[in-house]
C-alpha cells in the first residue's frame, strides 16, 4: 500500500466503525430507557449545553490524550501496554503520598514534585514488564496486565487503610494542600492548564516517531522484529524504553488527575483512563497525528454517556458498554476494508 492510497482509505473505514458504535449506543438507549428522547439529547448535544459538562469533557480529553499517547509510543515499538489502569492509579497515589508528606512547599515546587513522583511510579511499573520482556521473553501483554491488576488492589488497600481520611464519609485519602491544585480555566469544571502538555507532547512524539532516527528504529522493530534484529538494532533497549515511556505518561496522567481534578485519592478513580487510552490509540491507527480527533470523539462518547446516565432515567453502565462494543469492533481488519491478511499487531 503506497502512502497516497493510505491517506485516501484510512479514515473512512474508521468512521464506519465509529458510526457502528454510535448506532450501538443509540440502540441501547432506545432499548433500555423509558424516555429515549431525553436520554439521547443528553448523550449527544447535551454535553455542550453548559460550562460544567463542556469543561469536564475537555478535561477528560486532556487526560485521555496522555494515556493514548503512551499506548501509541509502546505500540509503535511492538509492545502492548495493558497495565495503563494500574499505572495511572499508581501515579496518582504516589503524587498524593508525596503531597501529603511534604505539604508546605511553594505552589510550583509542590506541583512539580507531585508530577515527578507520579511519572516515576508509572514508569517503574512499566519498566518492570519491559525488563521481564527483554530478559526472559515474558509476554508484556500479560505481565503489564497482571502487575497493574495486582498493584490496583494494593492501592485500594492504601486508600482504605493507611492513607484514608477518617473525617470523610467517602472512601478517600486526605486532600492535597490548596496551593498544589491547578486552577480551573473554565469554572466550575476542572479544565486546567495541563492541556498545554498535550500540545507539547503530541507534536513532540509525532516528530520523534516519524522524523528522527530513533523513532524510525523504534517503528521498524514494531513492524518487523526479525528485520530489525537483522539490521543490528538493540532489541533489548527498544523492548524496555518505549514501554517505560508509556508507563511514565500514564503515571503523569495520574498525577495531573490528582493535582487538577480530584485533589484526593478516591477508591478506583481511574475511570477507565488506561483502557480507553488503548481504544483511542487504536482509533488513531497508532499515529500521534490522528490522536487528538480520536480522543475528542471518544471523550465525547464516554462523557456523553455519563451525562446521559446522570441526567436521565438511564441507570446502566452505558459508558462501559459503549467501550466494550468499541473494543470488539475497533481492530477489525474486515470493517476497515483491508483485504489482505496481515499480522494484526
Amino acid at each position: 500500500m503506497n502512502p497516497s492510497e493510505k491517506k485516501e482509505f484510512r479514515l473512512p473505514p474508521v468512521f464506519l466503525i465509529l458510526l457502528l458504535c454510535i448506532a450501538a449506543a443509540t440502540g441501547l438507549i432506545l432499548l433500555l430507557s423509558n424516555d429515549p428522547a431525553e436520554a439521547l439529547y443528553y448523550f449527544f448535544p447535551g454535553i455542550f449545553s453548559n460550562r460544567l459538562y463542556l469543561g469536564n469533557f475537555l478535561n477528560y480529553s486532556v487526560l485521555l490524550s496522555l494515556t493514548g499517547l503512551g499506548i501509541i509510543i509502546a505500540f509503535n515499538a511492538g509492545s502492548f501496554n495493558l497495565g495503563g489502569e494500574g499505572q495511572v492509579y499508581a501515579g496518582a497515589i504516589c503524587a498524593i503520598a508525596a503531597a501529603l508528606k511534604f505539604p508546605d512547599l511553594p505552589s510550583g515546587a509542590g506541583i512539580i514534585m507531585m508530577t515527578l513522583c507520579g511519572t516515576a511510579a508509572g514508569a517503574l511499573l512499566a519498566a518492570l514488564s519491559g525488563i521481564m520482556k527483554s530478559r526472559w521473553q515474558v509476554n508484556e501483554l500479560i505481565s503489564t496486565f497482571l502487575l497493574s491488576a495486582g498493584i490496583t488492589k494494593v492501592i485500594d488497600y492504601l486508600i482504605l487503610g493507611p492513607l484514608s481520611n477518617p473525617d470523610s464519609y467517602l472512601i478517600t485519602t486526605g486532600e492535597i494542600p490548596l496551593q498544589y491544585r491547578l486552577p480551573p480555566i473554565i469554572p466550575p469544571s476542572h479544565f486546567n492548564l495541563s492541556f498545554l502538555l498535550v500540545f507539547i507532547l503530541i507534536p513532540a512524539s509525532y516528530f520523534y516517531l516519524h522524523h528522527s532516527r530513533g523513532g524510525y528504529e523504534l517503528r521498524m522493530i514494531g513492524y518487523n522484529r526479525e528485520f530489525a534484529r537483522f539490521g543490528g538494532l538493540n532489541l533489548g533497549m527498544y523492548d524496555t524504553a518505549p514501554l517505560t515511556v508509556s508507563g511514565a505518561l500514564h503515571g503523569l496522567t495520574g498525577a495531573i488527575a490528582v493535582s487538577g481534578t480530584y485533589f484526593a485519592g478516591i477508591l478506583g478513580f481511574t475511570f477507565g483512563l488506561g483502557w480507553n487510552g488503548i481504544a483511542v490509540a487504536m482509533i488513531a491507527s497508532r499515529n500521534p497525528a490522528y490522536l487528538l480527533p480520536a480522543v475528542l470523539f471518544f471523550s465525547w462518547m464516554t462523557q456523553g454517556a455519563r451525562v446521559a446516565v446522570l441526567q436521565s432515567d438511564l441507570s446502566l453502565e452505558l459508558g462501559n458498554i459503549i467501550q466494550g462494543v468499541l473494543f470488539l469492533l475497533i481492530s477489525s481488519q474486515a470493517l476497515r476494508g483491508l483485504q489482505k491478511k496481515r499480522d494484526p499487531l
Partner: peptide, 29 residues
C-alpha cells in the same frame, strides 16, 4: 469479531471482558 471481522484477538477479548460486566450490571439493574 475476532475471525469473521478479523479483529485483533487481544483487543476483542478485552472488549468482551469490559462489555460483559457492564451488560450483566445493566440487566441486573
Amino acid at each position: 469479531t475476532s475471525f469473521k471481522l478479523r479483529g485483533n484477538i487481544f483487543i476483542t477479548g478485552l472488549g468482551i471482558n469490559i462489555l460483559m460486566p457492564a451488560l450483566t450490571a445493566s440487566f441486573s439493574q
